[in-house]
Simulated scan of single mutants.
Amino acid sequence: MKKTSNRLADGREIVYYDTRDDAVREAVDQRPLDPAAPGATVSEIRFDPLLAEWSAVTAHRQSRTYHPPADECPLCPSRSGRFTEIPERDYEVAVFENRFPSFAGEPGATRADGPQGLFAHRPGAGRCEVVCFTADHQASFADLTERQARLVLDAWTDRTAQLSQLPGVAQVFCFENRGEEIGVTLGHPHGQIYAYPFTTPRTARMMRSAAEHRERTGGRNLFDDVVDAELADGSRVVLAGSHWIAFVPHAARWPYEVHLYPRRRVPDLTALDEAERAEFPGVYLALLRGFDRIFGPGEPPTPYIAGWHQAPVAAAGARGEREEFALHLELFTVRRAPGKLKFLAGSESGMNVFINDVPPEAAAQRLREAASE
């Protein structure tokens, strides 16, 4: 893999990843963009004392690009006088700082305002990046070759390593949203990476559960035990490789939801070995292509969210806690049947109690069939 770092017209970083060592990436961003003014991108995080969770307030994101025509896509290469976020005329994988980030800037002190200091807030430090998987606007991740998918994995890994070193970053989340039903506003195949200034609530909850399990079982690891239990049961296993295992979780919340784990527990993408990296593209592409066949021929591509759950960075917690966490990818769709979506209504949005219309065992059976078609 060859990595080339350049700058866009307003000073944001763009990084190209290529499979060829002789690839040259020297194109200059010719757009008349002014350097970002101090304070133009303002993100603030606020603490909810009832839930003990942080949320972000980002007023500048109201003006972000929204459903542009295909011939004005900002993620396509720059060609024939039409300049985009990617100055090159072609690329394999390109990663750049988001123009409208949810988190940006340097960390700052927490202020606790209001009676009893209940209104805690601080700058929403961190970084948000866009990952363009391919220059082909009409493609999707499932259309990539295994070589291309491996390059994306290498890019995710490199970005995880780089972003984990930034001041104030507590966790790195690589993810893809696909489909307008999910809320995607740019149709080009791409994902994002968030470098959060706190450990996310979902990860913190998993780590608490793992600590309680370890205490209750005399030192056993919860993630290992869950994977072993799913393998022993077998009814929800979708794919099983030499180094990766994919299954529908016993208590799946979404109609079709798959968790993909390396068989060897590692805390994040940087800890995968070469054998695990080599097998990942084939397993993941089979899952994504199966997702597109769930609902039968003639149905539009399945909307989905796919995200890597990684341990908080070393500076955010004790080393022992990081080593107890298990890297895994969660993939799910909001479509529950042809032409029908799973909406997060009263119970899900109001009380965080999910109600799933598709039994996990039935979902696993359909996914096994679809992955092998």
Rank of each mutant, 00 (worst) to 15 (best):
H259D: 08
R208G: 10
T333A: 08
R12V: 02
S55K: 09
V353Y: 10
V57S: 07
R64Y: 12
A337M: 10
G124M: 11
H250I: 13
V238H: 08
A155C: 02
Y66A: 03
R289F: 06
A139M: 00
P262I: 08
D224R: 11
T58C: 13
T302R: 12
P35R: 05
V226L: 07
L239I: 06
D233G: 05
R147F: 03
D136Q: 03
H67D: 15
V28F: 03
V152Q: 07
Q171K: 00
R264P: 03
Y66D: 13
F103A: 03
I245R: 02
F119G: 04
G105N: 00
H213C: 01
E88M: 06
F83Q: 14
V93Y: 09
E92S: 11
Y256H: 12
T199Q: 13
I182F: 05
I182A: 15
G124W: 01
A59K: 02
E180Y: 04
A94Q: 04
L344A: 15
E230R: 06
G282I: 09
R147H: 00
D224Y: 03
D34T: 00
C132H: 00
Y16C: 01
W244E: 11
A337F: 13
L341W: 04
G108S: 02
H328Q: 09
K340T: 05
A315K: 12
A120S: 08
D273P: 04
R20G: 04
D233N: 07
P32M: 07
S209E: 09
F223I: 04
D71S: 07
C128H: 09
P301E: 15
Y284N: 02
Y196T: 06
P267T: 05
I14A: 07
S372N: 01
A306D: 02
F103R: 00
Q365G: 15
R368E: 11
P69N: 13
A362G: 12
V15N: 00
A23S: 07
P101A: 14
V130P: 04
A104H: 13
Y17N: 01
A306S: 12
Y194C: 01
E230N: 05
P38W: 12
A27Y: 08
P281V: 08
G219D: 13
D21S: 05
A363K: 09
S80G: 10
S242G: 14
P74R: 10
L118W: 08
V130T: 07
V42A: 05
V237R: 07
F354Q: 11
